Amino acid sequence: MFKFYKIMFFNSLMMGTLISISAYSWFNMWIGLEINLLSIIPLMKSHNNSYPAEAALKYFITQALASAIILFSVLMMLNFSEFVPNNLNYFYMLMLNSALMTKLGAAPFHAWFPEVMEGLNWLNGLLILTWQKLAPMILIMYNLNMKLFLTSIIIISSIISGIMGFNQISLRKLMAYSSINHIAWMLASMLNYKTIWFNYFMIYSIISINIIILFYYLNIFYLNQLLITINSNKLVKLLFIMNFMSLGGLPPFLGFMPKWLVVNNLINGNYYMMSTILIIFTLVTLYFYMRITFSSLMISLNENIIKLKKINYFFMIFINMLILLSLLMCTIIFNMY
Rank of each mutant, 00 (worst) to 15 (best):
V236H: 03
S20I: 02
R172H: 11
G165S: 11
L78N: 14
W260G: 09
Y193C: 08
W30I: 15
V84K: 00
K309N: 15
M77V: 06
L75F: 11
M117Y: 10
L191C: 05
E118L: 12
S73T: 06
A188H: 03
L324Q: 09
A64V: 05
L223A: 03
T276E: 02
Q225Y: 01
L96A: 08
M257F: 15
F91T: 15
N124T: 03
I40R: 04
Y313Q: 06
L325F: 14
V116Q: 01
P251N: 10
E54Q: 12
M101I: 11
Y92V: 07
F109S: 09
N335V: 00
M257C: 05
T195F: 08
M44N: 03
I317A: 05
K147V: 13
T331D: 01
P114N: 11
L134W: 04
Y222S: 11
Y337S: 10
Y90A: 11
M336Q: 10
A66S: 14
K259R: 10
F113E: 07
L191G: 00
V284P: 01
G125D: 03
F215R: 08
T282W: 01
N145W: 02
Y59I: 13
Y204A: 11
F318E: 06
I196H: 01
S179T: 14
S67H: 02
L308K: 13
F60P: 04
Y193H: 11
F294S: 08
Y271T: 05
Y217H: 09
I153N: 02
I154D: 06
I230A: 11
V284R: 01
W30F: 14
Y142A: 08
Y289G: 07
V284L: 14
P52N: 02
F240H: 01
I332S: 08
M190P: 00
Y216I: 05
M245Y: 11
Y90P: 00
G269A: 15
Y51Q: 13
P251A: 13
F198H: 08
T195W: 07
I207H: 06
S157N: 01
Y313A: 09
V236R: 02
T282C: 08
I128R: 07
Y271N: 12
I169V: 12
L57K: 13
H110R: 06
S39K: 03
S39P: 04
S275Q: 06
N243E: 03
F256E: 06
G269V: 03
S152G: 00
K3T: 12
L191A: 04
L286Y: 03
Q225K: 08
N124K: 10
H182W: 04
E115W: 00
M274S: 07
